[in-house]
Design a protein around this nucleic acid. Structure first.
Lengths: 128, 128
DNA sequence: CAGTTGTACAACCATGTGGTTGTACGTTAC
DNA sequence: GTAACGTACAACCACATGGTTGTACAACTG
């Protein structure tokens, strides 16, 4: 039940590297939504079976998906806990940024905080 | 002030690719906390100045940092909005997973939901 | 002015990545 | 048993990546 506390640099590298490809991100999406076999996945993409196999292997090494034998087939499943770990990694950056803002606000004094925070935007992402 | 709504596959690739290196993640952390020059950054790592320059260039192409001239120096700053965009990308995966769980719960019926959700775990990562 | 500092950039090299084809082998279907 | 299916894996190729060194040049320093 307990998730690995610390991810090594190498593991983090593999996670982000695995996500840095559109085909692999699509595989993750699909395997999060439903179980699916390797060959069924391979049918979806305009590349060889072996190429898709390699993409799945990269995701598997990053532990973003798991593969389980069922007869001659291999069922691929997305690993949501690993996705959450990736989220936590980005949260860390966000926290660093916020702590910086807090320190700047402290320098500016309490009452100037409201104005300052509107300026450098600590709260809502500007997008979407 | 408004951030780009949709990220292209290529942009997403660059963001995750850029984060898939420990040195670059460290640069992002440091530039989120405080402004810092290229040469000051370069001093911190056990590699050539040019190598660090290249890492910064990768981050800049992913728009995870910005560079601004100040005299002969270049000030590097982390771009928190880009980090947030990356977070949103991972949120998307999380949502897919949750919607799957919701559908499974619906199949099991309303009252069976509580038991079922404890079983397949919508909240806390399961770990290995 | 001359010298030093900070940066940019090109050329080069070893290794990794993303694709291919071909072969092999266990599993299911007939 | 034989054929078809699903998968694994090796070999190969073009190109990207992450590092190096060397050169050039603008901006400060004295």
């Amino acid at each position: 039940m307990v998730v690995q506390l610390e991810l090594s640099d190498d593991e983090v590298n593999r996670i982000f590297r695995a996500l840095a490809d559109a085909t692999r991100r699509d595989i993750v999406r699909r395997t999060l939504v439903a179980e699916i076999t390797v060959s069924h996945l391979a049918d979806s993409y305009d590349m060889s079976f072996a190429a898709v196999q390699k993409h799945i292997a990269v995701l598997e090494e990053a532990r973003l998906v798991t593969k389980e034998p069922r007869g001659r087939e291999r069922i691929v499943r997305g690993a949501p806990d690993r996705i959450r770990q990736a989220q936590h990694l980005l949260d860390e950056f966000e926290l660093l940024w916020r702590s910086r803002i807090d320190r700047l606000d402290a320098l500016l004094g309490e009452d100037a905080g409201a104005v300052a925070s509107a300026d450098h935007d600590t709260s809502t992402p500007t997008g979407e």
